Computed example of a mutant assay.
Amino acid sequence: MLPGDLYDAAARFCTEAMAALAAPGADTAVVRHALWRQAVEMGWPAILITEDRGGAGGTLLDVASVVEALGRSALALPIVDRAAVVPTLLALCETPQAAALLAQIASGEADVASVLGLSSRLHADLTVAATHYLVALPERRMLVALEARALPLGRRYRSVDGRVMADVLTDRIEPDAAGVVARGEAFDRACAAAAGVGALLVCAETVGAQGALVELTIDYLNTRKQFGHALATFQVLRHRVVDMYVAFECTRGLVGRTLQDCVDGVDGVDGAGPDARSVSLVKGYVGRTGRLCAEAAIQLHGGMGMTEELLVARVAERALSAEFDYGDRYFHLRRLGTQKARPPAGEPARAADALMA
């Protein structure tokens, strides 16, 4: 979807990462932490940070290139959160605390994660340790920065795609003035923009996962034999692969165009993040096609598709889990139901808007 140097570098990173994770006796948690430190040294968390604050001054397309490549390997690294959501939050807060954290991220002194949540319960991703957490408190319309040791955690669990998660006990958070990064309207604006950016980049990650699922399935059907014939010779299986491929191509085109529109300013206004309607339309569609590809890949692999030893199973798990990051399709359908269809000034309504009107 987004070829270039960043995509190629991320693809090489993934190849080396998969080899490290597959090494005999490798400790997955230790390897993931080492991989994230390598990603930090490569400057990925600073891509969106402006040059005057020590960052690379890149765009959403640059981050999406990295995310798409990582989506092909299901590495469970927090690239979307720490390279896009957090910088977006801090850039829109415009407070001394936010500026200081941005500078520390750019220099590698701080590793900041976010706890946004789109429901009454907040969850923290603990797969890779962070030094600070930005916690959204919607009831108080407040965004607070906490050191990792001060984050009150409840139940811990493993997500479908292998991430270590924990509930955040927001009722135990009593921030001091120095820890408040944003309040009121600034809080609303920053969280809305960050959630939109996160949702779009999760869609880019799903594009990478779908492409990998198609390729891995074709390779398996060409290799595996039944009754003396390769599975790829059975027409019903070929038709199922075509369904996967069509879904992938449609998703790739839609997500790529939406990301480009956001960067060009068509779906973003004055740095306030992507248009909420566009995000919901894309996220709802990608949630459906991602599930279609994941389920088809597992079924076409048969019993082998249920084993985590195969990459296809891990990628399918990530594609299924990605639907629930930054709102699943039902969340975004409900949000669309509360919005009015209105085309940009001077432009005709798009086909999607016309269908939703």
Rank of each mutant, 00 (worst) to 15 (best):
Met1His: 02
Pro3Met: 04
Asp8Met: 12
Ala9Tyr: 00
Ala9His: 06
Thr15Ser: 14
Ala17Cys: 11
Met18Pro: 00
Ala22Pro: 01
Ala22Leu: 04
Thr28Leu: 11
His33Val: 04
Ala34Glu: 07
Gln38Ile: 00
Gln38Lys: 15
Gly43Asp: 01
Pro45Asp: 10
Ala46Pro: 04
Arg53Cys: 12
Gly57Asp: 03
Gly57Leu: 07
Leu60Asn: 07
Asp62Met: 08
Asp62His: 09
Asp62Gln: 12
Val66Glu: 01
Val67Met: 10
Ala69Gly: 04
Ser73Met: 09
Ala74Asn: 06
Ala74Asp: 01
Val80Cys: 13
Ala83Trp: 05
Ala84Phe: 11
Thr88Met: 11
Leu89Gln: 01
Glu94Tyr: 05
Gln97Phe: 04
Ala100Val: 07
Gln104Asn: 05
Gln104Asp: 13
Ile105Gln: 05
Ala106Lys: 11
Ser107Cys: 11
Asp111Val: 14
Leu116Pro: 06
Ser119Arg: 13
Arg121Tyr: 04
His123Asn: 06
Tyr133Asn: 05
Tyr133Arg: 07
Tyr133Gln: 06
Glu139Phe: 10
Arg140Gly: 00
Arg140Cys: 03
Arg140Tyr: 10
Leu146Cys: 09
Glu147Ser: 13
Ala148Gln: 09
Ala150Leu: 09
Ala150Thr: 03
Pro152Arg: 14
Arg158Asp: 03
Val164Tyr: 13
Leu169Gln: 12
Asp171Met: 12
Ile173Met: 08
Glu174Ile: 13
Pro175Ser: 14
Pro175Val: 12
Ala177Pro: 00
Val181Trp: 00
Val181Phe: 03
Gly184Gln: 05
Glu185Val: 15
Ala186Trp: 00
Ala186Met: 05
Cys191Ala: 12
Ala194Met: 03
Ala195Leu: 08
Gly196Leu: 08
Ala209Leu: 06
Ala212Gln: 09
Glu215Met: 11
Tyr220Trp: 02
Phe234Gly: 13
Tyr245Lys: 12
Phe248Gln: 11
Val255Ala: 04
Val263Gly: 05
Val266Glu: 14
Gly268Trp: 10
Ala272Trp: 06
Ser278Phe: 02
Ser278Lys: 04
Val279Ser: 06
Val282Phe: 10
Val286His: 09
Gly287Tyr: 04
Gly287Trp: 03
Arg291His: 05
Leu292Tyr: 00
His301Thr: 03
Gly302Thr: 05
Gly302Asp: 01
Thr307Tyr: 08
Val312Leu: 14
Ala316Asn: 06
Glu323Ala: 10
Glu323Arg: 08
Asp328Thr: 03
His332Glu: 02
Arg335Asn: 14
Gln339Glu: 14
Arg342Thr: 08
Pro343Arg: 04
Pro343Gly: 02
Ala345Glu: 06
Arg350Gly: 14
Ala351Lys: 05
Ala351Glu: 04
